[in-house]
Design a protein around this nucleic acid. Structure first.
Length: 580
RNA sequence: GCGGCGGUCGUCUAGCCUGGACUAGGACGCCGGCCUGCCAAGCCGGAGGUCCCGGGUUCAAAUCCCGGCCGCCGCACCA
């Protein structure tokens, strides 16, 4: 059986995940997380929080925004338009094509903004055939990956389920920015569910129609030098396959330090690179070694509509080769600009200079009275155009010709002149730029399971990083027919539960079987109460990965488990070795 | 969405081609009991299956035919 199949089998059997709505035949792209899967995902989310929010709490905060979005927001973001592709199917070979691409290639016309009906007409009129087999093409249809719904009882009130959490952060940027007392850089993070109506989801947990996204929108001043922020990170390594390398047919990533990647222009902004380093380390902590991950730059035509540079963080899995677990996009000011335009709200940021600056600049001064007398009803138009002209050029024209042409009229020095003024400028207004690291949580659940999966002496061991284990400790009575032993085991279980831990307790079957069951679901440490416990109060602690055991007083078990699980202490530090 | 292959106890599977003694068999797992001084041990007992769903052919369908759903593999989109 393949590794993938073994994991899927384990997942179903022990309760990590399975297809949703199974009793009704299932629905593609939807998965349930079982008791262990839900815990594992929570631990992964917690780790993400630690890396992306908690460690950066001086500049990154977490919010929560709705899944349902009014259509206006996604019109502004470009998703209503750009998450939609016109597709056409060949009637004979049944291949699918992007209708606009087929038409552009065959007829050589621009298709931007054409409706499916118009595209269909062009196909009919120009007799555009299937590029693969020459067959007849069908009717152009549109598919949109957005799930559409209706908000309230009014049909016209269209809403969508969000395809990414990002828009919630952009829309609420101003409020968060203000509540964070107007500081930049500012990261706004969110963990939330999103939905994309994939045409053909497959690949189990890797490609879902509904999933949890974990993303940060990191807002900053595009003119500021952020190289200081990556101090201490310059030497961090990243494996990157650049778009340039890809265009030349290269398939292997190159290794760069962060500094090199920036110096060579492979990564266009220090902050983009900074979060890529954080992402690499976070994924390493899920159990994926450095050499099994790299960043692939998207080619221009592969990028989302909002991005000017994008990297996918790829992780190697047995079944599908390299799969994306995160995306790192330089979104520029695209989103905030669009929301300014669509909402009419000012989303710019004011940034005071350390000291007000005296700026000398040229200014066009119009003599409105003279213009009004001379040009009468045309003067409003002249004044409007004048306001948007470049002072330097006006000055030059006046100097050279003695007049300047505005709205088809010659204006002389009596109508307009240019003067130099000194102005005090306290700061500047600008639209922040954004870099975005964005993770899919369920993919990480699968990846984490795959990297933890081991076979040892014919048994399955889930060697999950200890702090990710759904259940942190197992407690067993060595035998189940001695009341004292069972009683003490139950007491220890209760103490661990009271300490806030999730405990696997089992008194059925033989001890070896119970260890095997605990190993299989990744419980990092097992505590066994035996006959000696009744004599001297000590119990054994067993390491899931090495199967080594130590003995220590049961009064110290809670502390020992915590040190083992959260502080990664070795088993030997926690007690006296057990012989044998 | 199309093409190819597949869907049988919790899991993995036998049976399907060549319809009927299939009351659908096995292994593992699960539950209970006994036993057990540390790694899936032993003994006894038990529960568990609308053979993916719907329709058709037939005296008779897990088995043949049609449609649907789901999964895997290829073509287009993506965290």
């Amino acid at each position: 059986m393949s590794l993938y199949r073994e994991i899927v089998e384990l997942a179903k059997r022990r309760g990590f995940f399975w297809p949703s709505y199974e009793i009704y035949g299932g629905v593609g792209g939807l998965y349930d997380l079982g008791p262990l899967g839900a815990l594992l995902k929570q631990r992964i989310m917690e780790k993400w929080r630690r890396w992306f929010i908690q460690k950066h709490q001086h500049m990154v905060v977490e919010i929560e925004t709705p899944v349902i979005m009014p259509s206006r927001v996604l019109e502004a973001s470009g998703h209503v338009e750009s998450f939609t592709d016109p597709i056409v199917e060949c009637r004979s070979c049944h291949r699918m094509f992007r209708a606009d691409h087929v038409v552009e290639d065959a007829v050589g016309v621009k298709t931007e903004g054409l409706t499916p009906e118009q595209l269909t007409r062009i196909i009919r009129e120009k007799n555009v055939r299937c590029p693969a087999c020459g067959g007849e093409l069908g009717v152009v249809r549109v598919f949109n990956l957005l799930f559409r719904t209706q908000i309230g009882p009014y049909k016209g009130n269209v809403g969508y389920l969000r395809p990414e959490a990002a828009q919630g952060m952009f829309v609420s940027f101003k409020r968060v920015f203000e509540s964070m007392r107007g500081r930049l850089p500012l990261g706004i993070g969110q963990i939330g569910r999103v939905a994309r109506n994939e045409i053909s989801p497959r690949q189990g947990m890797i490609r879902l129609r509904e999933f949890t996204i974990m993303e940060v929108e990191f807002f900053f001043d595009p003119e500021e030098d952020y190289r200081g922020m990556i101090r201490g990170f310059e030497g961090e390594k990243l494996r990157i396959l650049s778009a340039e390398d890809r265009a030349q047919g290269r398939e292997e990533p190159r290794e760069y330090t962060l500094q090199e990647a920036l110096d060579q222009g492979v990564v266009i902004h220090p902050l983009l690179g900074y979060w890529m380093v954080v992402a690499r380390r976070f994924v390493e902590e899920l159990g994926v070694p450095y050499e099994n991950q790299f960043f692939e730059e998207k080619l221009p035509e592969e990028r989302a509509h909002y991005a000017s540079q994008t990297f996918d963080q790829l992780v190697k899995v047995e079944r599908w080769g390299w799969v994306e677990v995160s995306g790192h996009a330089y979104r520029g000011d695209y989103d905030l600009s669009r929301h300014m335009k669509f909402s009419g709200q000012d989303l710019t940021v004011f940034k005071p200079y350390p000291e007000p600056r005296i700026v000398r600049r040229k200014r066009i001064v119009a003599n409105k009275q003279a213009i009004g007398r001379r040009f009468r009803s045309k003067s409003p138009q002249i004044l409007r155009e004048l306001a948007s002209m470049d002072p330097a050029r006006v000055e030059e024209a006046l100097k050279k010709d003695g007049y300047v042409v505005v709205a088809g009229e010659k204006l002389s020095k009596e109508h307009v002149y240019v003067e130099e003024v000194e102005e005090k400028v306290a700061g500047k207004r600008f639209i922040p730029h954004v870099v975005e690291p964005s993770f899919g949580a369920e993919r990480l659940v699968y990846v984490t399971l795959e990297y933890a999966y081991r076979r040892k002496e014919g048994r399955t061991v889930l060697s999950l990083p200890r702090d990710l284990a759904p259940l942190q400790a197992a407690v067993f009575p060595l035998v189940s027919n001695v009341a004292g032993i069972v009683g003490e085991a139950r007491r220890i279980r209760d103490k661990l539960v009271d300490a806030g831990l999730y405990v696997f307790y089992d008194e059925s079957g033989a001890i070896g079987r119970r260890y095997a069951r605990a190993d299989e679901i990744g419980v990092p440490v097992s505590i066994t109460v035996d006959h000696r416990t009744l004599e001297d109060g000590t119990v054994t602690l067993r390491d899931r990965d090495t199967w080594r055991q130590v003995r220590l007083p049961s009064s110290r078990v809670v502390e020992a488990v915590k040190r083992f699980v959260w502080e990664n202490a070795s088993i030997e530090e926690l007690g006296e070795p057990v012989e044998g």
